[in-house]
């Protein structure tokens, strides 16, 4: 378009320029060649983009994906607490009540060498005291996680898995997770427990298949 600007500038330059032909025709030819080259490049780029798009689109899903950790692979190394870009981490301990034995001596609540089973701070495994122990009836106690306080270190998960039913499990809390393009916990996870899973089934709980997640 701009090449069709007033002839004045074109002529002015031709005076100085050393072109193949020192007249307007040469300039025109050059412009045509450039135009041809430009159109060619545009078409090439368009085809290239289309190619990349088709290659990627073959693997494109209509679904959105979220990060989740698989408790069966988790080794409770404690990195969920430290590697998340959020402080505190978006990974929390989740209590699957349906699996809980409501034990008095809870492996997830008490330190292994606890003498007296009471809520004293010196007895608790949780470094932030995020687990609440409430008496229900003899000899059963309910344990609830205060997610505001939980840092996702997995100490209780380890204890519960070793001595109890494994009802305490680490999970990425989807309301807290920013769903980064690359999860920095996933990158640091030594057990390869993290994966992207479809957004309509955002939790992977151990002991219960994905399908019967309506554990009441």
């Amino acid at each position: 378009m701009r090449s069709l600007q007033p002839n004045l500038t074109v002529n002015m330059n031709n005076k100085n320029r050393r072109l193949d032909n020192m007249n307007g025709k040469g300039e025109e030819k050059r412009i045509n060649r450039r135009k041809f080259f430009r159109t060619g490049a545009q078409t090439g780029l368009l085809i290239g983009l289309g190619g990349i798009a088709t290659l990627a689109a073959r693997k494109a899903g209509s679904n959105e994906y979220v990060w989740q950790l698989d408790p069966t692979k988790c080794t409770q190394c404690g990195r969920c607490a430290t590697s998340c870009i959020k402080t505190p981490s978006a990974v929390k301990c989740v209590h699957v009540y349906a699996m809980c034995g409501y034990c008095d001596l809870c492996g997830g609540y008490f330190l292994p060498d606890t003498k007296t089973l009471n809520t004293g701070a010196e007895n608790q495994l949780c470094p932030t005291k995020a687990i609440k122990r409430t008496f229900i009836e003899d000899p059963f106690f309910e344990y609830t996680i205060d997610e505001e306080v939980c840092i996702g270190c997995g100490k209780c998960v380890k204890g519960c898995g070793a001595f109890g039913n494994g009802s305490l499990q680490l999970q990425v809390r989807q309301d807290r997770c920013d769903n980064c393009n690359e999860c920095s916990i996933a990158r640091n996870c030594p057990s390869d427990a993290y994966s992207r899973i479809p957004v309509d089934q955002p939790y992977l709980l151990k002991g219960f298949g994905q399908k019967n997640l309506d554990i009441k």
Binding site: V94, Y97, Q174, N179, V199, P202
Partner: peptide, 12 residues
Amino acid sequence: YITPETLLPTPR
């Protein structure tokens, strides 16, 4: 006593 439900907050 009724076993409480395990809350599973949904993503965005």
